[in-house]
Design a protein around this nucleic acid. Structure first.
Lengths: 302, 302
DNA sequence: CCGTTTATGCTCAAAGTGAGCAATACGGAC
DNA sequence: GTCCGTATTGCTCACTTTGAGCATAAACGG
């Protein structure tokens, strides 16, 4: 299960709301943004971050507004960090939550999520067919079709943010109500599409999920989430947990082995439920061999 | 020629130095970072930005330090904007400069740049073979080899930032001297590797070039740089100007046409020096047809 | 010892890619 | 006017990559 570290925020009027961990950056104490992040995370949660990269900087006015809370303007520099969950680490106020708790429509591991056909599609179609909706530069119809793979379009698992923003615009997520964009005025009760988060944190998380989904395809970051030794099927399960849909087992194995991403340790794992599985480890040398797989236009002659 | 908009900065002690345009962001005046950027660029240069995306946020301490100038800590949120150069637009203090003015080693349009073999390679090899250089997690040798395509490695045109940072670490660019990392102490006079920029602006530009080079491969941003109508060879020349190396003409044509990125206008352009060339235009519909070309692991069965 | 379950090996067709040959058509030189 | 150089455009062909499925191997539970 892909999980995210959240802070339960009890001070909310409508009960506890999850938020992403965040804190101030002080250039006086820390030489770089990233070192500030690491120090701050460690102090708060005891977690020593491994892989971390800058995600996006969120600075829109109103992003911090929430209910009757008038906050000062805050610019947040989001970072994406990847880690295994160490059960040994007991955190006071942090908790691990499944991604799909917040984005149920992104979980395609058991096929197309029911919430799409039952709730999202009809609501979005109605929203898209609204008057003066066709006047947009790109029609709402087309945006809905591309983002949610309607009418034969293919589901692009990387468009996590685009989907969330569409639902936001359509007033179908709870956070939109804070922005005055409330669907309940038009179509009765708003359905609960995933669990909302504090401030604009669900948007930030959507950005992060989209980034991870894109990145594992051209950088071996998936191994940040694996133990040292693993079977190819465990690796596949991890990739699937992140991307959403199922992968073809034999081809996945061919791809991963053929790309030189892994090497067998020589050990096997018993009790898999069937034939024992060879254990593999990440081949770090691959970083020095391939520039970065996934190029499109390749240099040629003349 | 791919160019960047720079501001000539006369106040420098060592004569005029080019810098990227920048200015303050005031959340009171502007609702979003991007709208602040647009308004500010328009007021300064008269330019109406078209395509713009957030690039990276630069916040390291010391990034603003320069010579005897002790500046306050500044966090810069970099944006990347793409536009055609309109010669009609006369700017007071702005000027268009070739990318390769600042990064001569990135220009592979006339084959491997001489500066690589003549200056960069020997200097970097010396730096990499230094004592305790092999103790690094990834050896300097390997980093140099991967970044600059030595010993049979292939040149990855996207690693613009990595190359600049390596040269910086090795003390081979002028900006490094401000950071106390001066090669001239070891190896005599520092060679002039490209023209330096103000503050850390050359690093920011390297980030931007790397981003553009990566992005044109999976998003049709190249058309932001083209006039409405163009020949396929003009398009190829533009791509080559950005990426560096030459492309195979017939295959480029097949790729672009086959991907549905362009459609013929029906017109032809005479006086090409040979047979007249058909004119094409960008097919906007492609945005609605393909999710985003360039995916690696595709969903399959079971 | 057999059936179930998972791991792993292999094949095959279809699509995509790198490279080059060849024909077409204009502009300029003679 | 004809020829030649140059650039555009069409096409072939071998080779690689990819999607999909069949078949076999090896543990485990009864």
């Amino acid at each position: 299960e892909p999980v995210v570290l959240v802070i339960r925020n009890e001070s909310d009027t409508a009960g506890a709301t999850d938020g992403l961990p965040f804190g101030p950056f002080s250039p006086v104490q820390h030489r770089t943004l990233e070192s500030g992040l690491r120090a701050w995370v460690h102090r708060q949660t005891g977690l020593e971050l491994g892989y971390a990269e800058q995600l996006y900087t969120f600075g829109d006015r109103g992003r911090h507004a929430q209910l009757d809370d008038i906050a000062p303007h805050v610019v947040s520099i989001g970072y994406l960090a990847l880690t295994q969950v160490k059960p040994s680490l007991e955190m006071q106020n942090g908790a691990w939550r499944s991604w799909y708790h917040f984005f149920p429509w992104e979980d395609w591991r058991r096929g197309r999520p029911e919430i799409l056909e039952e709730t999202i599609e009809p609501r979005l179609r109605e929203w898209a067919s609204n008057r003066n909706a066709a006047a947009q530069p790109v029609s709402r119809q087309e945006r809905v079709r591309m983002c949610f793979a309607l009418d034969g379009a293919t589901w692009d698992e990387e468009k996590v943010l685009e989907r969330y923003e569409l639902l936001f615009e359509a007033g179908l997520v709870e956070e939109a109500a804070r922005d005055g964009r409330d669907a309940s005025r038009h179509w009765g009760e708003r359905p609960r599409l995933g669990v909302p988060m504090q401030y604009d944190h669900r948007r930030i998380l959507a950005t992060a999920i989209g980034r991870v989904r894109a990145k594992i395809k051209y950088r071996p970051v998936i191994f940040e989430l694996m133990p040292d030794d693993f079977t190819l099927f465990e690796l596949q399960r991890t990739v699937e947990a992140i991307l959403g849909p199922h992968l073809h087992k034999q081809n996945f194995r061919r791809l991963v082995e053929g790309a030189g991403l892994v090497e067998p340790t020589g050990e096997v794992k018993m009790r898999t439920g069937g034939r024992p599985a060879k254990l593999y480890r990440f081949r770090r040398e691959v970083l020095l061999e391939r520039p970065a797989p996934g190029v499109r236009v390749k240099p040629g002659k003349v």
